[in-house]
Structure formats: C-alpha cells, structure tokens
Design a protein around this nucleic acid. Structure first.
Ligand SMILES: [Mn+2]
Ligand SMILES: [Mn+2]
Ligand SMILES: [Mn+2]
Ligand SMILES: [Mn+2]
Lengths: 215, 215
DNA sequence: ATAAATTTTTAGACAAAACTAAAAATAATA
DNA sequence: TATTATTTTTAGTTTTGTCTAAAAATTTAT
C-alpha cells in the first residue's frame, strides 16, 4: 500500500465508525483536503485491491482486509503518539502531525517492539484505544461530560476533539486525563456546567462538555 | 524535499566523500538501483533547486545547502539506528532498512528530542559519526584493521561494510564495537591475520580486516 | 411529479518519478 | 589519430495521484 492509499483507508475507517452503512465521497474529500473527483479515482483503485466495497453513487465500506489494514495504521499512529508523549516529552497537542508521518513506516517488527518498549499501552495520549497486534480493541464505557449525571464522580478518560486549541485549553484549566470530575450544576438556559475538578470549581461551556469523555 | 530527492542527496553525499571532484551519474544509479537516465532527470531538478552543481557530462557536487541537507538526513538515519538498537533491542544488522524509512520523517523537533532522549550519541551502532544539530561531525582517527601495526592493542570502533552478512559474521566471532584487538601475525601470502580479541585467538581473512575499523 | 440543488462520476490534463531505446559526448584502445 | 567502447543525455512512455470542467445520477424542494 502506498502512503496515499493508507491515508484513504484510515479516513474511511474513521468515517465508517460514524456512518457504518457507507461513507460518502464528499466526506472523504473533506477529511483528506482533496477533491471529490480524486476520491472517486482512488476508490476504484482500492476496490480493485479489494480493500473496499464500492459501487458508484452508493458510498463505500471497508472489506475485512481493508478493516484490518486500517486498524494496523491506527495502531501505529497511536503507539507513536504514546512514544512521543511518554518518552520524548512532547505535549499531547504536538504529536498528531508527527504521528501522521510515522504511521506509514512499514516494519511490523518495529511496531511490535515499540509496543513492548511502551509496555503495551491500551490508550493513546488522547484516550483513544490502541488496537493490539491482532487488531483487537479494548472497549470502554465512556460518555461525554455533557451526558454525565449530576453529583457523581467521574474520571476524565479522553477527548473527542483533539485539536491543539482544545487540548491547550484543557492544559490551561489543568484538566488532564485521569482528573476526577463531578458535575455540581447544569445551567438549563445554555447547558453550562459548574464542575469540581480535583477539588477546584470550574465553569465549563457546553461545547467543552461535548468534547470531553468521562467514565 | 521529496523522499526521492532526499535519497538522491544522501547518495551524492556518500559518494562525494570518496570522489570529491564530482560524482558520476552511473555511480548514483548503481547506489539507488535505478537507471542513469532517471538520475540525469533528477540531477536537473536538484540543480534547479540549487542543491547540487551540475553540468552535463561533468559529474555533480553538492552545494553548501545540499551538503547541509545531506548531513541532516544522515543525522536522522543514524539517530534512528541508535534508537532501534539501544531502546528497541534490534540487532545491529536489522536496523538499516528501517532507518532508511525513518530518516525521511520531517519534524526537526522530533529529531532533536530523540537526540536528547538518546543522550546525544556521537556514533551509530556501526561506528559511523552522527552529525549534531548544526551538522558538525566528530572526526575520529580510525584505521582499517588491515593497516594496523603488529602487536599493538587497538579497539574495534566501526565497520566499513555494514551488510547483514558481515555483521552476523562478527556476531558469530563475538567481535563487537568496543572489543580489544591485537594483530599477532600477518601471513605474507594472503594477508590473513592472526589476532587476539578479548583474550581469544582468531584467524581473520584480509577481506574481514579490510572492513573493520580500529583505533 | 417536476424542477432545482447537490453529490458523484467522467473526461482530459498535469507533475513527479520512473522506464526503454536511441543519440550524443567522452574515454579508452589500436 | 582514428576507431571502438563506455558513459551520459535526450526523446518519448508509463504509473501514481492530483486537478478542473462538464456530465450524469441522486436528493431535496416546489
Ligand atoms: Mn492523532
Ligand atoms: Mn491520538
Ligand atoms: Mn544505515
Ligand atoms: Mn549505520
């Protein structure tokens, strides 16, 4: 697989978690910052290689083989992110772009040795699960902070939006994965939350609450 | 720079250490396992980007900017090799191919953090010097074992040939970088050496002696 | 149900990096 | 020096991945 093919497969994987019946050409184009016509061309090629099932105008889904490949790319991406944060001391908002490149390094021995070196982590720095060498993914019952019950203690376990802006905002508010969090009040007008985080009180907008996973 | 351009620049760098007056088209083609015509095409492009000085039929040399770029690629290659051996426990004959891919990862922050993580190594697992962030290379007065004086204690500090075959042969003979080595006798007929390595006696062919650096 | 809007695909073109075959320049040899 | 051999370059293709513009299919709205 070329780097470009891998990027398409990965994007189709992520989109099909949201639209499992079939992923739109335009959605793929949007994610890859390319044109719909380019996507159509690539879908034909991926279909020839039996990585996707594609019938024109009907959207696209991954085949079993495409699904497996996608998970291996995601595995590499997330393991490299762990490496960058845990070993090289990058901040969690700095690692995604670099991992976008590292995820295309071919060696299977490399990724398995890296996994071992990192002591087989289950989650990446953003709380996303890391598929193991067989492609198995540990399922976690997380929910968005916006859906959390009042006066119940949760733990921050992941972010939905992992843009640098959002991650830096969390840093500024000293909200990290692992922080204890409890919703004390919910403003009915705009769903603003009054929360207690590690015994500090904070006000969080609904937008924030919609992008923070808790458990 | 594309990956292909980087590979050309790196090969021209290595070849120009041997032929500083100008590197031949055919030599480049040989190293990159491509055709001379492809090399000519690329030399024009590199010349347009002022990474090389090129006049047709006259061979090619790196410009200052090309030279600096080449050293940064070599820096990345060798730092990754150290990482693979020191941290991921790869054998020294397994790392070159993987480093061939890793050397093209773009981030400068990454390579400098990796350098720090590895505690700023001066040499890679094959004894080759690692340029620092400014492109400076530590010069070492090493010589080939075949040129070593008799009955003088040396230390193995590098290999000239770093093919898997040669490296595995050294492993089998328990010759590693850092081993103490002394030439006891030199057979005048075929230059075979009788050496003492870490207090074991061994017979080494001239071909071996011509590919092992000592100091 | 028809028309309008949107999405998707096709057709044709382009740049990068490779190739083959043939021509041109340079180097080696008689 | 003239001839031959080798090296290098040019000319013309190919493949991959992209693009624009236009056509076709599908979806939405009237
Ligand atoms: Mn990421
Ligand atoms: Mn991540
Ligand atoms: Mn190497
Ligand atoms: Mn090396």
């Amino acid at each position: 697989m070329t780097i470009s093919e891998e990027n398409y497969i990965k994007v189709i994987y992520h989109l099909s978690l949201v639209s499992p019946k079939g992923v739109n050409t335009n959605a793929i184009a949007g994610m890859l910052d390319t044109k719909a016509s380019s996507v159509t061309d690539m879908l034909k090629k991926l279909s020839d290689k039996e990585l996707v099932s594609y019938q024109k105008y009907q959207g696209v889904t991954l085949t079993e083989s495409g699904f497996q490949s996608a998970k291996m790319i995601v595995r590499k991406h997330r393991l490299w992110e762990v490496f960058l944060v845990e070993k090289l001391n990058f901040a969690w908002d700095e690692v995604h772009e670099i991992a976008e490149e590292l995820e295309h390094i071919k060696s299977e021995a490399l990724i398995n040795k890296l996994d071992e070196f990192l002591e087989f982590p289950d989650f990446d720095p953003h709380g996303d699960p890391i598929p193991n060498a067989n492609g198995e993914i540990k399922k976690v019952n997380k929910l968005l902070l916006s859906e959390a019950a009042l006066n119940t203690e949760y733990k921050c376990v992941g972010v939905k939006d992992s843009s640098s802006d959002f991650l830096k905002y969390l840093d500024k508010q000293k909200i990290a994965l692992g922080s204890k969090i409890k919703v004390k009040e919910k403003e009915s007008f705009d769903d603003t939350l009054l929360v207690e985080i590690d015994s500090r009180e904070l006000t969080l907008s609904n937008k924030i609450a919609n992008n923070l996973y808790v458990k």
